[in-house]
Design a protein around this nucleic acid. Structure first.
Lengths: 254, 254
DNA sequence: TATGCTTTGTACGCTATCGTACCGATCGCC
DNA sequence: GGCGATCGGTACGATAGCGTACAAAGCATA
């Protein structure tokens, strides 16, 4: 069992001693190699995972016609939030987009812990709320933001959840996630690069100007992240002082 | 107070006597005129509403640039599910797209009831799960389905939640909801009409062939509705026998 | 160094959708 | 029955993104 104080997972890190005591006996370290499918669509979930590092993509697909990303998370989230919503499956796939490690817990054990502890439940439900907003903003961006803006948005979201400024993504991959053609990604990236916001290398995008990239992402980026900071706490590793007055996360909700 | 057995709201209708007893003293009938904003974005929610009739649209907006619908519900849902997720505000607007009536409850009273009753909480959380899937499917459709398919999807979703086959919508309205131009809606509607699926009249669309329209909506329609039937119960008023074997809703979740 | 695979850049014509504008049709109201 | 407002149909050029194809570049391994 890892030491109490060393969790990188934001949710685990925010738990009080009682809730940690409830979960810890059931947590086991697990490797999350890139490409690993952590949630199979429409299959009962057997384990939840608190990611410590790495990135998870949630994918919706129109049969074979297309696959698009509807959300993503890393150490800010939890694989298997649906267990807190009284179900045990979802129609969408979740897979590791960037390899990492996490802490696994058997579905029944997590469900029992959620039922036993109101504070643990509250935390997971609040996270679910931020993810719902993220998904809604994705729907919005997909409907009305041009490809370049949507690309910038995903890059910033990846960057939020990663150490360092190098994102390991190919154009091909980004095109799938955005639901656009690969050449569209190439061109859009060139625009962002031309503006000095990123540097594109083979199978990698380096973020040069995070603030500029955030602006390029347009207003579809922001609300979900603000809600995370309001309801849970800092999202980014190196988060600057939040825009809201301090203390917001503790007493924010009604 | 309305009679126990007459709730049209699907969630209220599924509650057991104990949960009804918990809520009923706090429920008050409310009128929901068309256009009424039932949830202001980023404002604390003071009341939740169980719609009995009418339709609610949840709208995300890119500042002034565009407004698109990210989800909708009527008597199948609840205005203010976020209260069950430990928050009291959302960044999206909800307004009445079709006028109706509902049962209002003060936010604090609902929150207390949710905390007091695990079964009430479970029902609302399960509904939230279906809405999350609906939003995800919207994101998917917006990314990769042509306008005609998305139009068909919204029409079927309206139809699910309404009595009769006449939908009161203008092209202008549909264009906003879909995030497309009004002429695009006009043309797409003509396609659907040409296929004999709907009949378009001024400020109204009559559904002629629901099954055909469902097919025209493509695979983005279906998963959210199936999940509703699995987790909660029949969605449509005149629901035919669900595709799943019977009894699914009771023991579906883990 | 040679080979081969993955990734990226670019080109082509094509289609859906855009923004805008204008006019006819329908409806409610006086 | 006439008026004004809303709603629907259509047209125009402009453009973003599509599907496809192919070649150049980077990287890994032999």
């Amino acid at each position: 069992m890892p030491d109490l104080s060393t969790y990188q997972n934001r949710l685990l890190a925010r738990l009080g001693p009682d809730d940690l005591a409830l979960l810890q006996p059931h947590l086991e370290p697990v490797d999350l190699p890139v490409g690993m499918v952590v949630i199979e669509p429409d299959q009962p979930i057997t384990h939840a995972v608190f990611p410590e590092t790495g990135l998870c993509s949630v994918i919706a697909s129109l049969q074979e016609r297309s696959r698009v990303e509807i959300g993503l998370y890393g150490r800010d989230g939890l694989v298997g939030t649906v267990l807190a919503l009284g179900s045990n499956r979802v129609p969408h796939q979740t897979f590791m987009q960037v390899s990492g490690t996490g802490l696994r817990i058997e579905a029944g054990a997590l469900t029992r812990a959620i039922e036993a502890s109101a504070s643990l439940r509250l935390l997971i439900l609040r996270y679910t709320q931020t993810f719902l907003i993220q998904t809604a903003q994705t729907a919005l961006a997909n409907a009305s933001a041009p490809a370049e803006e949507r690309l910038a948005r995903w890059l910033v979201m990846y960057h939020d959840r990663q150490d360092g400024d190098d994102l390991s993504v190919t154009h091909e991959f980004l095109s799938m996630m955005l639901g656009v053609r690969r050449p569209t990604v190439t061109v859009a990236l060139q625009m962002l690069e031309g503006a000095g916001l990123v540097r594109a290398q083979r199978a990698r995008v380096r973020v040069l100007d995070r603030r500029g990239l955030t602006e390029a992402a347009g207003p579809a980026y922001g609300p979900a992240e603000a809600e995370y900071e309001r309801l849970i706490g800092p999202l980014r590793r190196d988060a600057e002082a939040p825009a809201q007055p301090s203390g917001a996360a503790q007493d924010a909700a009604g």
